[in-house]
């Protein structure tokens, strides 16, 4: 599975510019879906129809977002340096000395205005990007061009590190689950590879309004409390996928949480329960869509979220795939 993960995490796809990731995923899922479409916002939707002849099969929407955080050039100086703004939650403390790459392959180095006090961090607007240009005229980047952070995928035993585990690892889980699902399923499954999650869960909102799911499951990363002096949280790497109970944007459907726990226990899958005090996922707009859906989230515990070295544990990823497959393969009595 590491080859799949590597190709996904190294791909270019800041929010709003997910085309490359979509082109990568589409051929991987087409053999396993009855229908693959792209909606007006750019969400990639793979539908696997219920085949068991139920009159009104449940519509189940599974969402993993394709987009990653990044930056966008907002101004080119006369000397050819870029000022930039953030795409999604980019922390200033993750920038200095980092590298970004634009859609056309242009590489940039992030520098910072003169620091008077090395103990304080400059805000984003006192950083610049150096692409090697010497003037506005010979700068290959234009205002509005987006870039992602550059950092190669590394597998260190079970620990996998990359710049966009959030949420290509969710995409990997969705792709792998789609491959492993039995040919015949009793629910109408909509695997949505969503756009623009990092800028307000926007893709999933539109996709959910189009699909009007009965049941919704987001696949995304969550924070952990297992590093020195971290904010206390009872989720750690390597203890299994986390079944979300609550985050700051949504409370998961209590019946769906119970069902996920039961399915995990029946299948012997280790799991954790997640109460996340900052952040939310595509489950929020899916829960709110139309007449409302039964919503929950399977989370992959991840250290250093929104830095270029997001780190997950391969066994948690494997557990997330197994949990999703067992959940979707069986009855959903809520």
């Amino acid at each position: 599975m590491n080859d799949l993960i590597r190709s996904l995490v190294e791909a270019y796809g800041p929010s709003g510019f997910e085309d490359g990731v979509r082109d990568l995923i589409r051929p991987l899922i087409e053999p396993h879906a009855d229908e693959v479409t792209v909606d007006a916002l750019g969400n990639l939707i793979a539908r696997k129809r219920a085949t068991t002849g139920e009159a009104n099969p449940l519509k189940v929407m599974i969402a993993a977002h394709m987009d990653e955080i990044g930056i966008m050039a907002s101004h080119i100086t006369e000397k050819g340096f870029l000022r930039f703004t953030n795409i999604g939650g980019v922390g200033s403390h993750t920038l200095l000395g980092g590298r970004v790459r634009f859609a056309d392959g242009t590489l940039g180095i992030i520098g910072v205005d003169r620091m008077e006090d090395r103990n304080s961090i400059h805000p984003l607007n006192k950083h610049f990007i150096d692409v090697g240009a010497t003037s506005r005229e010979n700068c290959p980047v234009r205002v509005g061009d987006a870039a992602h952070f550059v950092r190669p995928f590394e597998a260190r035993g079970r620990h996998l590190t990359a710049k966009s585990m959030d949420d290509r690892i969710g995409c990997a889980v969705a792709i792998e689950a789609l491959r492993r699902l039995p040919a015949d399923v009793s629910h109408d499954l909509y695997f949505v590879f969503s756009v623009q999650e990092e800028v307000g869960t926007r893709g999933a909102e539109a996709a959910a309004n189009g699909i009007m799911p009965d049941v919704s499951i987001a696949l995304d990363v969550t924070l952990t409390g297992d590093v020195p002096e971290s904010r206390p949280m009872d989720v750690r790497l390597g203890a299994g996928p986390a079944i979300k109970v609550k985050d700051s944007g949504m409370i998961a459907h209590a019946g769906l949480v119970r069902l996920m726990r039961r399915r995990a226990e029946e299948a012997g899958i280790d799991y954790q329960l997640e109460v996340l005090e900052g952040g939310t996922t595509d489950a929020r707009p899916m829960q709110l869509a139309g007449p409302g859906s039964v919503a929950g989230c399977i989370s992959i515990p991840c250290r250093y979220v929104h830095t270029p070295s997001e780190t997950v544990d391969a066994s948690d990823v494997e557990g997330a795939v197994a949990l999703l497959v067992t959940l979707l393969s069986a009855d959903m009595e809520l």
Binding site: G249, M250, I251, R284, Q287, L288, G290, P291, G292
Partner: peptide
């Protein structure tokens, strides 16, 4: 339901 977090029940009941 859930007015204190997201107005969930108001959004969904009015839609339905």
């Amino acid at each position: 339901s859930q007015e204190e977090e997201t107005f969930l029940g108001a959004y969904t009941s009015a839609y339905a």
